[in-house]
Simulated assay, not measured.
Amino acid sequence: MSIASSRKKILVTGAGGFIAHHLTTRLKEMGCWVRAADIKQPEYEATHADEFMQVDLRDRVNCAAAVEGMDEVYHLAADMGGIGYISQSHAEITLNNTLIDVGMVDAAHKAGVSRFLYSSSACVYPQFLQHDANVVALKEEDAFPAAPEEGYGLEKLYTEKLCQYFTEDFGMATRVVRFHNVYGPLGTYDGGREKAPAAISRKIAKVLDGDMIDIWGDGEQTRSFMYIDDCVEGLVRIMKSDYSLPLNLGTDELVTINQLVDIVAEAAGKRIRKSHDTTRPQGVRGRNSDNTRLRDVLGWEPKIDLRTGIVPTYTWIAEQLSALDKGSAQSAYLLAAVAAPSR
């Protein structure tokens, strides 16, 4: 018997992205044999997977190949990003994620995987429950009657139900996780798909002490933010559990975006002035996770507070930007040297 066949074989989709890359590393540390699949390789660090399939999971042939021989599937692949992207790309996001999710759920069922975990989102919750910055924390049952975020949230809610139907009709063991704003090192921090902690960290890292940064909205919109280590721990625990209905996975530490800016500035050791742009997308007015059911099911919930988690996050982003600046300066020097006339 080979080493691979003697260990649990796990597929992680979306492993070229932030959360799934960290999850792959954790599963390897647990001794699992891991196949990773995504349309792209991880951007900031080489994968730790035993096998990386660089494939487009919108193609059902690729979905079938990815799940072949696997015991469990953590399905995290998705077309997603920050509020600026998901609020302006409804058709593209809905089409891409429908193709990916339907193909993966069906392929996992046909391959006979023992457990299938689907990564959903807090965007499934009704917009009418999130009009107040002092939002009441969202319970899992609040998803219905439905009025989710257009595009991204609607497709996520649909696929949650698809997982339920595959469990009810075919006995396929599914787990559904509703993420609430995950942040940490090795995550996207520029380009339009980054989330608020990364975007704010980037902005503060690029300015001097006492400078001003722009904030989308008036800054009084509220969110909760979960550090990546807690997210990965929660995923592993939920997969191992016997609970098949959707579960929130997030912290219940509610902060305003203005407070988030202050926390990042504190980590950076800078005084920052804020300029608010109310013409930019800002999403729902308030969103927070109710962790009652998570505690009941797992006897656990995320524990890393925002002030603690933002320090390694900001530090990593600042280091990335510093390295880019040094690279640009070196390239400019070399170009100037080449262009200089000989004597």
Rank of each mutant, 00 (worst) to 15 (best):
E150M: 09
S119N: 11
K156G: 02
F128S: 10
P126I: 15
N134L: 11
E141I: 12
V124R: 02
L157P: 01
K139A: 15
E149C: 06
S119P: 00
F116K: 04
V135M: 05
D132K: 14
V124Q: 02
L157A: 04
K110V: 06
Q130R: 15
K156V: 04
A133P: 01
A107H: 02
L154A: 13
G112A: 06
A107W: 05
Y118E: 09
Y118F: 15
V124A: 02
S114C: 05
F116L: 10
K139W: 04
E155I: 02
P126F: 10
F116M: 08
A111K: 05
R115D: 15
A147Y: 08
A146D: 06
E150K: 05
V113H: 12
E149M: 12
A146C: 03
E140V: 12
A143E: 10
P126E: 14
E141G: 01
E150G: 01
V124T: 15
S119Y: 04
K110N: 10
E150P: 02
C123Y: 10
A143F: 01
A107F: 04
V136A: 15
E155C: 02
L138H: 08
G151Q: 04
L157I: 00
A133I: 11
V113F: 10
A108D: 04
Y125V: 09
A143W: 02
Y152F: 12
A146F: 03
S121T: 15
E149I: 06
F116P: 00
N134Q: 13
H109L: 15
A133S: 14
K156I: 05
F116W: 09
A122C: 15
K156R: 11
P148V: 09
E150C: 02
V135T: 14
V136Q: 15
D132I: 11
K139N: 08
S114D: 15
C123V: 12
A143Q: 14
H109V: 09
Y125R: 02
C123K: 07
K156L: 03
E155W: 00
L157K: 07
L117G: 03
Y125S: 04
S119F: 05
N134P: 00
D132F: 03
A146I: 07
L138E: 10
G153Y: 03
D142Y: 00
Q130D: 05
Q127M: 13
Y125P: 00
A143S: 08
V124N: 03
D142P: 00
A147Q: 13
C123N: 13
